[in-house]
């Protein structure tokens, strides 16, 4: 059995209201849980980009990417391993303000983690940490013993080390 790995799937698409559904249904049909999915503009005007994180075998991710690419309004889809991407996630941690004074080591934890304080008021303060999963997780484990009022983490966003040449793909379509 081939080893399961983390893969970042990058999908370049037209802007279409039903596409999130169309893409996610491909995973649903195969009983695959998405670890995260984000959508944003891309480097090209009017072209959108989904970044999807999954854990599966390469054989499976390859087939899924084929099915995604087959969708009419998908321009191109790629998959990459962690080694081939520069990826980041952002986590927000909401903590009781009194802890800052009662538990002095919290200040050290924050300093060492390189996290930034987004807001502070009398009741709570919010820390934001952007980095790789391992870093946001480390801060989570460090803060958890003190009690987290809220925690949330964004989906992964990633760029690849190699170029993806979407402009060339588009040019190719236009020449037909």
């Amino acid at each position: 059995m081939e080893e399961k790995k983390y893969y970042t799937i990058s999908v370049y698409t037209e802007n279409n209201v039903g596409l999130v559904n169309r893409i996610s249904t491909i995973f649903l049909k195969r009983h695959v849980n998405l670890l995260s999915m984000t959508a944003s503009e891309s480097e090209i005007e009017d072209v959108y980009r989904f970044t999807i994180l999954v854990k599966m075998t390469e054989e499976k991710v390859k087939k899924i990417v084929g099915q995604i690419e087959k969708q009419i309004e998908v321009i191109k889809a790629y998959y990459h391993t962690d080694e081939e991407t520069i990826s980041q996630e952002t986590a927000l941690y909401k903590v009781k303000s009194e802890l800052l004074f009662d538990e002095p080591q919290i200040q050290n934890i924050i300093k060492k983690s390189g996290a930034s304080i987004v807001t502070v008021n009398k009741k709570f303060f919010v820390i934001s940490k952007t980095g790789r999963r391992i870093e946001t997780e480390a801060l989570h484990s460090a803060l958890k013993p003190f009690g987290l009022l809220q925690f949330t983490r964004s989906g992964r966003i990633a760029v690849t080390k190699e170029a993806m040449m979407i402009s060339d793909v588009l040019k190719d379509f236009d020449e037909e």
Binding site: T13, E14, I72, E73, V74, I75, D172, F173, D174, E176
Partner: peptide, 13 residues
């Protein structure tokens, strides 16, 4: 109303 047949879709080969 006016009608032009579709000759291609940018993202679809």
């Amino acid at each position: 109303f006016s009608y032009e047949p579709c000759k291609g879709v940018r993202s679809y080969k």
